[in-house]
Design a binder for these strands. Structure first.
Lengths: 161, 161
DNA sequence: ATGGCTGCAAAGTGTTTGCAGCGAT
DNA sequence: ATCGCTGCAAACACTTTGCAGCCAT
């Protein structure tokens, strides 16, 4: 079991992960455990580099390649989703099946808000049908600027490395 | 003037391009002209590599770097939009201001249909407002499978190089 | 003639992979 | 004792850049 007392609320995640590892004949390992724990703790949209930093910040010596391999494993298992926005890098997020959501992104401070809108989903189905397609998934990103410019500015500042 | 008799209907495009080049002190050149003509003729979502191939297929010897530079120039001028889907490469398309559209994509044959839906746009504005954001742009991609499996299969076949 | 443009190859990104040794079962 | 996993460095795919010469203005 990879789970720990810190991860209450992610039971479904660990159940499916364990099942996947088992089914594929893969192993539980310490680096894997560490990466997953920290990924879940971040509970956000992270790219491989950011996750790698977080892992190192907590004192673990894990290679970037392992971060990628773990993230890909989770993606293959259907537990995380990988998305690519305009810049080069991919962003990963937990694929909670009960919580499909779209994104509202501030292009200044990179803040990302998740939302869900049933009416839009219905309209999407209608559109797909109209064009003779069977809808499988979708992706909706709204880009804009925070109206709260003070908080937005603070976030920009905190990102300057 | 970059325009030619082949490009009737893109008057707005060339007007804005000429204005941009002028404003920035940039030049009209033969490679640039060629790339733009062929890009407009393709009138589709192309990546740099595809455009490069089309250019070479028509007998022009233009480097890939120049394709990228021209595409970036057009992007900076606001005349084309650059999008990145799941795979690595970016796709470029004409940014016709009167024709904003979203995409319906078959994940089997890569066919891409453009559509527009006013109701969805209105809902998006409402969402942004609700979360304290000023909406600038958005991006909506619907992924699915063609119901016409024959045509879909034919397209897949024609792509195998 | 100036200064932007081009091709080429080299340098950069972000991501994946081959390998030899380590570690989980 | 298997066979997967890990770190490292090399390999990759896509994109950008430095340079020396070319060409539009």
């Amino acid at each position: 079991m990879v789970s720990s007392s810190e991860n209450i609320g992610y039971a479904w995640f660990f159940e499916r992960l364990d099942a996947y590892l088992d089914r594929m004949g893969l192993k539980q390992t310490q680096p894997r455990r560490t990466i997953i724990q920290i990924f879940l703790k971040l509970d956000a949209h992270v790219d491989a580099e950011e996750l790698h930093q977080s892992v190192r910040n907590e004192g673990f010596e894990i290679g970037l390649a392992t971060i990628y391999r773990t993230l890909n494993l989770l993606t293959d298992a259907g537990l995380v989703e990988q998305k690519s926005f305009q810049d080069g890098r991919s962003v990963f997020e937990i694929a909670d099946p009960d919580k499909h959501h779209d994104h509202l992104i501030c292009t200044k401070c990179r803040r990302m808000i998740e939302f869900e809108n049933h009416k839009i989903e219905v309209l999407q189905e209608e559109i797909a049908e109209k064009y003779g397609m069977e809808l499988k998934t979708h992706r909706l990103d709204l880009f804009g600027h925070c109206l709260d410019t003070v908080a937005c500015g603070a976030r920009i500042k905190s990102q300057q490395k």
